[in-house]
Amino acid sequence: MTATDVWLPIPADEIDGLPDPADAGLNYRYWDGDPEYPADPADCVFYVVPYMKDMEVAVRPMAAMTSVRVIQTLSAGIDHVQPGLHSLPAGVRLCNAKGVHEASTAELTLALILASLRGIPHFVEGQQREEWRAGFHPALADKSVLIVGYGSIGAAIEDRLVPFECARVARVARSARTTERGEVRALTELPSLLPEADVVILSTPLTTSTHHLVDAGFLDRMKDGALLVNVARGPVVDTKALLTELESGRITAALDVTDPEPLPAGHPLWHAPGLLITPHVGGPTSAFMPRAKRLLAGQLTRFAAGEPLRNVVLTTE
């Protein structure tokens, strides 16, 4: 019997535009990480990884998916499924969720920058204590911004920076190229770019080359008073090195992701000076579900028709 199951973390009847199961020869199975599987993983041909679940959940069924042909994440990053890729048969396409999280993550990035520069956490604390904490704070206007990781999310962040009258936006990615907005510099040029940036935004994928990219040397090159914003992955930053800089008061930071994550009670990051923390909420907003459903409907329509899929990150060997 040919495997025909599609595992979805969203009930199929809630996704408009999916191929008709009878016409496409597909069986839609709902699985959002529950202990019990909806069917035999060996019969799954298209696996949509549960969203906002930990790595153990994401990879748990993969070793038994002997017929799988597509792994589709609902996140921009793929690091949470990579440990399970070695167990898959050759020729499996891994697709990410490019197009789903750009709006939400870019919004949060701007919120973190503005909240940090304008002292919003300080004002909230003052409100709770009934204290009128007037004073001078820096603006985003006239600042030099460096975006490290210039994929679709990095580009969406720059789109939203445009009205804020930044003096300069520099872009860095794995390799140099030219875009409609201008030059994208290679990661190797970071040492010369960091001293010029008032705000450094991290939106790079987590890979072996970006793990602890932000180490003591990286932070030391940042100018005094600069703001580091991480909306990428926690391990892109060396937490110990960041704590050293924060405790010195030389730079400030805003983190939507941390290492470790979730951040445990008692961890020194909770009370580090000059730090704003949000609990990995860049993606899960009201903008997520409509975009995720459109992505799945489109991908499965292409899959059923034998057409090329979008967002293919790699193919297993």
Rank of each mutant, 00 (worst) to 15 (best):
R294I: 04
E130Y: 10
G77F: 04
R250T: 06
E261H: 13
E196G: 04
P138S: 09
A254H: 03
E307P: 02
D54H: 13
A76E: 01
E131P: 02
A170C: 13
H211V: 03
L114Q: 13
G249Y: 11
K293N: 07
Q299L: 09
V92G: 00
L8Q: 03
S192P: 00
D5T: 14
R129L: 12
G225Y: 09
R310M: 10
E247L: 02
S75M: 11
A197E: 00
Y28A: 03
D224L: 08
R60Y: 04
L18P: 04
A305E: 15
L88D: 01
S67F: 04
A12V: 08
V200A: 00
A170M: 15
D220Q: 14
R118V: 02
A155S: 14
A176L: 09
E125C: 05
P163T: 09
L85T: 02
Y51A: 11
I10L: 14
L227K: 03
E180H: 09
D215H: 04
F46P: 01
H211Q: 12
L242K: 01
R221W: 04
L74A: 09
L193K: 06
V148N: 01
R60W: 03
A226C: 09
R171Q: 07
G151S: 08
M55F: 02
P11Q: 10
R133T: 13
R171N: 07
A64S: 13
L219S: 02
A297H: 07
V214M: 04
A156Y: 03
A24L: 10
P191G: 11
A155P: 01
A141D: 12
L117Q: 07
R160L: 12
T278A: 12
F123Q: 14
D54E: 14
V172R: 01
C95K: 04
E245H: 13
G135C: 08
K98E: 11
L190M: 10
A58R: 01
C166L: 11
R174A: 13
V237I: 13
P21W: 10
D159G: 05
Q128V: 06
P19L: 10
